[in-house]
Nucleic acid binder design. Sequence first.
DNA 1: GTTAAGGCCTCACGCAACGGGAGAGTCAAG
DNA 2: CTTGACTCTCCCGTTGCGTGAGGCCTTAAC
Lengths: 252, 252
Amino acid sequence: MYQIGEVATMAKVSIRLLRHYDEIGLLVPSGRSEAGYRLYGHSDLQHLQQILFYRTLEFPLEEIQRLMSAPGFDRHAALLQQRELIRRKAQELGAVLDLLEQTIADIDPGVQEKNTMSTQQMFEVFPDMKQEYQDEAQERWGNTAAWKQSAARWKKYTKTDMERMKQEMAHVYGQLEKVFAAGTRPDAPAALAAIEAARLMSDKWFYDCPKELHVKGTEWTSSDERFVRNIDKNCPGLATWMHQAAKANLHP
Amino acid sequence: MYQIGEVATMAKVSIRLLRHYDEIGLLVPSGRSEAGYRLYGHSDLQHLQQILFYRTLEFPLEEIQRLMSAPGFDRHAALLQQRELIRRKAQELGAVLDLLEQTIADIDPGVQEKNTMSTQQMFEVFPDMKQEYQDEAQERWGNTAAWKQSAARWKKYTKTDMERMKQEMAHVYGQLEKVFAAGTRPDAPAALAAIEAARLMSDKWFYDCPKELHVKGTEWTSSDERFVRNIDKNCPGLATWMHQAAKANLHP
DNA sequence: GTTAAGGCCTCACGCAACGGGAGAGTCAAG
DNA sequence: CTTGACTCTCCCGTTGCGTGAGGCCTTAAC
């Protein structure tokens, strides 16, 4: 367990930043000392590292928070994606470099050759960092309306809300795993009950989720390796089974 | 002459940003239409490009403004420096990439090998963007105290102040050039008067500038090719001559 | 014992760099 | 002469922290 100052020097960030991340719930230290000192464990450090990776990609903090505490978040997959995005960012920097070279060449030859560079050229490569990468993350999720709603709701959740949500989720997924592990067929009543509970949870915490959308949702998660790996962690095949159950639940 | 919207689409920035840059005096369009519409000329576009380069390097706007309207600012030199800095930034990104690879490798092997990565390693490479590059720009200037004071003063200057300053500077440099062009020796009374005027101007607009510091200042500018090129633009040898005059002015 | 030096805590305000309206004038086209 | 696309000037809101102020904890030195 490290104190806040140690973490700050290790990660070369300010103490204030760590406190800020605690305030907004992005990185809540896993313990407190008797005197109220923040105590960070090793998992917190991993968390922080993740956050810093996202930050180099200029993700807004809120986005980072949503991503990292999303139901299907998988560290390994996230790292792979980040690698990809950082590669792309490096390429962009390369483009800027090229533009610089060009610009230099354009005004270099001695006194004052006429500017041969078109106004289009002049600005072609500047990174529009604002969205770019986030959009990518969203595409994977597919539906934008639902996404936005989810994002909007997250804003309002307090820490206690989050706690409650986590508990509910654990319970619902526990049920699903139990039913699935028992070999229940996805159109059996017990399966339908469990999947319905999952749907209602999505509806409550994330976005309006009618049965049709839930079918879609389970389809995505069962076809995206990142989610599958996480959902199937304890129960291989669960993701697909959930999708089938959701379909069966359409016409009970 | 382009309207604000055209510039915005060309440079892929928001209209609001352009207005903001106008407000803070960073990029004041070179004209206005009768109706008060901002009109941007080609030089404004060049200016904007410069600004965007600096912004990719995450220079604070105020810094950019100071640099670009500094007495000895030279576009070509600036471009060269920016190239260097962007190269460095690309390297940093590369380092982050390496760290990502390492981290991935560290948790990849199947189930759960123990984390072999030290906490130091975990954070070694994250760019401390805050200062880094600006410091570089400052080093060139040498004296930090004077620099800071200069920076502090700039904050308070209004546009009209800037106008007045430009006029004064033009006048003082005009005098210097005239005296110099006449072949006056740097220790002649006319030279001393002109250099003293220059010193007082520095003192007034930039930072407390006793004669000793002015000697230093002229020494820097006469040994830094970027300034020399600008000062000597019309009068080759002026920078060095000013340095000598400043020395002579120590003991008039 | 106490006292001084760090490190930590919680407010709380401040700041940069814009985003996003509101309300109103301008300008070409139909 | 009106409509739609642009533009203008306020002015308030937001994100991601920086920077104290004022006060408690802990340790090491006098």
